[in-house]
Design a protein around this nucleic acid. Structure first.
Lengths: 155, 155
DNA sequence: GCATTTTACTCAGTGTACTGAGCATTGCCA
DNA sequence: TGGCAATGCTCAGTACACTGAGTAAAATGC
């Protein structure tokens, strides 16, 4: 007895939102490249030559997931991976020409998809939603490694 | 060039939100029972005797994922599954006593977790966020099966 | 200079989440 | 009533996403 109303649970709504997004992404952006894969292409567009760990930091993926996503992008020859000559632990990542083209093509389509996705909201509401989600996600970042004494990390 | 700012992409934010939620859930609710599993327990608390398909409909899981989640809940003996005597295709699902107890215990904890999760927002902002997410998720539901009137699929 | 620790990455295991194909039961209807 | 479509579920394949354990290279400490 006493079931809960899940529409007041932000975690449940976030999951449903992601599912809806997945649906729209497949229909309007790409069936080959997923949204996390695009995020990696995007990060390497902004900062070529990042290593895996930093890419994960930029797009919000943990070390294992980043490795898998990169494996798939390598298989599609959308990026290159080579050992850092200055640090044998690192792999430096760079987009191939095909990777750059793919990123540009998909970036254009995401604009239309986001428009449809947020279509039911007014422009003000859209901004509000993005801002609120951002604040909650950022705040939760602080829970990541609670035992690390807080030196405030600047940009 | 021309990397995109992902903080204006609701899909990206939804993913980050879910990751943050996962973190908090593990810390404050349960490491055994996941949030989708709880959603299934919750649906069966509200409506005992549902079949798998309907459970999926209630909590927003597709047929395959529901089957897997239910398998795990069966393994933990939190629910019972038996063939519908009136319809041999269906399986009827019901919570065990242990399942009911687990649901109640976790339901209490989710209250505290949601409070922390939404903590960075004011009460008004919390309501706004929930409402906006709900509207976007519901609207996207319409994209699920655009063709229910018969589009002729050849043999 | 060598041992310890830290760091970047890999690997194994678990759990969502989706699609497409297949199988058995039911319901419809000509 | 016999065929056929619809329905409920399973299974295989792919792709995130996390944890914990393990490996190799670099930085640190003495």
């Amino acid at each position: 007895m006493q079931a809960v109303d899940l529409s007041s649970h932000p975690g449940h709504l976030a999951r449903r939102l992601q599912q809806a997004h997945h649906l729209l992404w497949n229909a309007m952006v790409s069936q080959e490249i997923t949204s996390p894969q695009f995020a990696v292409l995007n990060a390497l567009t902004a900062e070529p030559g990042l290593d895996q760990r930093t890419v994960g930091e930029r797009v919000g993926l943990d070390r294992s997931t980043v490795a898998e996503v990169i494996t798939r992008l390598l298989r599609r020859e959308l990026l290159d991976k080579e050992r850092d000559p200055a640090d044998g632990r690192r792999f430096l990542l760079r987009l191939t020409d095909e990777g750059s083209r793919t990123h540009r093509r998909l970036a254009l389509r995401t604009v239309g998809m986001n428009r449809v996705f947020l279509g039911p909201l007014s422009p003000d509401e859209q901004q509000a939603l993005l801002g609120l989600m951002h604040r909650v996600a950022d705040a939760a970042e602080a829970f990541r490694l609670p035992e690390d004494a807080g030196s405030p990390a600047g940009p």
